[in-house]
Computed example of a mutant assay.
Amino acid sequence: MSEPVKVREGAAGASDDKPGFDLGSGPGRLLVWLYGVFTVAAASRSVVQVILDFGRAPLAYVLSAVAAVVYAFITYSLVRGGETARKAALVCCAAELAGVLVVGTWTLVEPSAFPDATVWSDYGMGYLFIPVILPVTAMVWLRRSARR
């Protein structure tokens, strides 16, 4: 009887853009799910607010729409996988965290600028602070995935 032939990973001709492992597996699967839920939540909220009452708080409603686009891109990148998608998601998570910190601080310092809340208001307090925790967790996961 012969032994099975072992195939060496990373053989010549393999694409550099293929992931060492799937970004959407393990803890990454939870991140995909959470980002997917936040995409739907932020997009739904902003669409309804823009249609029904845009004049009341245009800045808040536009920022919720921006959050939805960022969440959607990160979700797509995690599902797609690969080194390029990992790097793009990492940059978007950093931008998301910066947005949450800027908007969160802005809503506390000058509440009158936001007559209605955004997804990122008060550091995401209306969403159990997940908007501030999620990008940090995702960046840790994405950095960890680069080492595999």
Rank of each mutant, 00 (worst) to 15 (best):
D53R: 15
L23P: 01
F54W: 08
A43H: 02
S64Q: 08
V62Y: 00
L31G: 02
R45L: 11
G36V: 07
L63T: 11
G28N: 05
Y61K: 15
A67H: 07
V62F: 10
Q49D: 13
A65W: 15
V66M: 13
A57S: 09
V37T: 07
L59V: 15
A65I: 06
P27W: 15
F38Y: 10
V47R: 01
T39H: 06
S25Y: 07
S64H: 07
A68V: 10
L34A: 12
L59I: 14
V50R: 00
G36T: 05
F38P: 04
A65E: 09
I51M: 08
A60H: 00
L59H: 03
S44R: 01
G24Y: 09
S64P: 13
V40N: 05
A67Y: 07
F54P: 02
S44L: 09
R45A: 07
G20E: 11
Y61W: 09
A68I: 12
W33Y: 09
V47K: 03
W33R: 13
L63N: 00
L30V: 13
A60E: 14
A68S: 14
G28E: 04
R56M: 10
S64I: 08
A67E: 06
L63W: 01
L34F: 14
A68P: 03
A65T: 07
L31A: 06
A41P: 01
F38I: 04
L52S: 14
A43V: 05
V32H: 04
V66W: 02
L34E: 02
A43T: 02
R29S: 12
R56G: 11
A67L: 06
V37C: 05
V37Y: 08
A68L: 12
S25R: 14
L30F: 09
R45V: 04
Q49N: 13
G20K: 12
P27M: 14
R45M: 11
A43P: 02
L63S: 01
G26M: 02
T39A: 05
S44I: 01
V32P: 02
V40Y: 07
G24R: 15
G24A: 15
G20F: 14
S44F: 09
A41V: 10
L30C: 03
A65C: 08
G24K: 13
A42P: 00
V32G: 01
F54R: 05
L23T: 09
G20Y: 14
L59T: 15
A68M: 12
G26K: 02
V66K: 11
A60R: 01
L63C: 05
L34C: 09
P27V: 13
A60T: 13
S46E: 06
Y35T: 04
A43G: 10
R29I: 02
A42D: 04
G36L: 06
V48K: 04
L31C: 09
G26F: 03
A68N: 07
G55K: 14
P58W: 01
F21M: 04
L52T: 14
I51F: 08
L34H: 06
V66I: 15
A68Y: 01
S44W: 09
S25E: 10
L63M: 13
V50P: 00
R56S: 15
V37S: 04
G55M: 12
F54C: 08
L52R: 11
D53W: 11
V48E: 05
S46W: 00
